[in-house]
Design a protein around this nucleic acid. Structure first.
Length: 111
DNA sequence: ACGTTGACCTATA
DNA sequence: GTATAGGCCAACG
């Protein structure tokens, strides 16, 4: 079986760099990796990362509207929301409040 | 090899 | 707000 090469690793690497109390979007990650049109693959990689028992803060990744679109893939549907709240992020009705302020842009935060 | 799937995005109605 | 459509592209069966 082929080991997960570039894509999988790169995605997880960026996600792991997301600071506590900040969030980012699938599209932003994809764009940063130079695969702007493969934003769906970012979510796929995260989903796989959960199965593989990797230490990935997947709860810090939401869609471009700040919606917790991936909450259903966690151990519990409420896990993602609680994790975000524990980091000081306001989450209400499935969406990140103050999204503009907590948004973490790889382009401006990484070299 | 081929068809389907998907934690997306944008557009339209 | 929901629905539908098109595009995108790696992985899976």
């Amino acid at each position: 079986m082929k080991y997960q090469g570039d894509f999988f690793e790169d995605v997880l690497e960026v996600v792991k760099l997301i600071p506590r109390g900040r969030v980012t979007s699938y599209g932003a990650i994809a764009k940063y990796l130079g695969v702007a049109r493969s934003s769906r693959m970012v979510g796929w990689a995260l989903n796989k990362s959960l199965e593989k028992d990797l230490n990935i803060p997947a709860h810090r990744v939401v869609n471009r509207l700040g919606l917790l679109s991936g909450k259903m893939h966690f151990s519990s549907p409420t896990k993602m929301e609680e994790e975000l709240r524990s980091e000081g992020i306001r989450v209400e009705n499935n969406s990140v409040q103050n999204f503009n302020e907590v948004f973490w842009d790889p382009f401006s935060e990484l070299p």
